[in-house]
């Protein structure tokens, strides 16, 4: 497996979000294989019936993924040549967190991101971090664009793999939000103490150039890629990623 260390650096990583087994197992594996050479890391979502913070495009992928729930992760085993983290909602796994984390560890995930952890399960942060570590997984934290400053400070002390800032109200939907200002605020709080990854509605080389300039350590592409492959296939998706990668390394 190729490890691209997730560190605070001048090089902004390209992270691709995919929902496991969307649109079906074969195409999903084909996508992974086709784009692995330019993607630095994958974020793989566990298909759920309640993707609560996601926008219409990613919701659709959860609804239509071939395999539902944790079993959808089985196809990752042995098929990933890049680092990947697992994204799942705590609501689905709160009663059997150890089963979920064991599965993530078994299939070789590097870390785990649970977007509703800090909003709906705030008291469970310690437990989440400890359990992740027990299974050899690195915790990642999702924060919104209006997250309390002191709480961001606290998250940094857990030494997560990264903090993921959602730039928009939900994935894939672009509102007139001054994201540059919000990213700068959280970047200045986090500083160089932990990598800052951003996502939600990023779609163009100009977007990633701007984010790179502000100093983010990674950008996540999700809805834009899914729309692109729906429009004209995996090759188009690859082209989109190539254009974004060029903007990141130029």
């Amino acid at each position: 497996m190729v490890h691209v260390p997730m560190t605070v650096s001048s090089c902004t990583k390209l992270i691709l979000y995919l929902t496991a087994t969307y649109p079906n197992t074969t195409t999903f594996l084909n996508i992974i294989e086709t784009v692995s050479h330019i993607v630095d890391m994958f974020e793989i979502g566990v298909p759920t019936t309640n993707p609560k913070y996601d926008g219409p495009t990613i919701r659709m992928t959860h609804r239509t993924a071939e395999v539902k729930g944790l079993n959808a992760l089985d196809i990752l085993r042995g098929n990933m040549s890049r680092d990947f983290i697992i994204m799942a909602y705590m609501e689905d796994h709160v009663d059997k967190l150890d089963i979920f984390l064991r599965k993530c560890a078994e299939i070789g995930a590097k870390g785990v991101l649970m977007p509703d952890l800090l909003f709906d399960y705030y008291d469970m942060v310690d437990k989440f971090v400890n359990e992740c570590r027990r299974f050899g997984l690195e915790p990642c934290f999702f924060i919104s664009s209006k997250f309390p400053y002191r709480e961001v400070e606290r998250l940094v002390t857990y030494r997560p793999l990264f903090i993921y800032l959602g730039l928009q109200a939900c994935s894939g939907v672009r509102l007139p939000i001054f994201i540059e200002r919000n990213v700068k605020i959280y970047k200045s709080i986090i500083g160089d103490r932990c990598p800052l990854v951003v996502g939600f509605a990023i779609k163009s080389p100009d977007d990633v150039r701007l984010l790179k300039k502000i100093g983010v350590d990674g950008v996540v592409i999700g809805s834009a890629f899914i729309k692109e492959i729906a429009r004209c296939g995996v090759e188009c998706g690859l082209k989109l990623l190539e254009s974004l990668k060029r903007a990141l390394v130029e």
């Binding site: 309640n50 913070y53 909003f119 924060i143 919104s144 709480e151 939900c170 939907v173 509102l175």
Partner: peptide, 24 residues
């Protein structure tokens, strides 16, 4: 929001129908 002891839960779309967030 910058000073709350816990974060504000994000706005959400309902399970069905078009994205209300997009409509804003």
């Amino acid at each position: 929001a910058a000073d709350l002891p816990v974060p504000l839960p994000p706005v959400r779309d309902p399970d069905t129908g078009p994205s209300r967030i997009e409509l804003l």
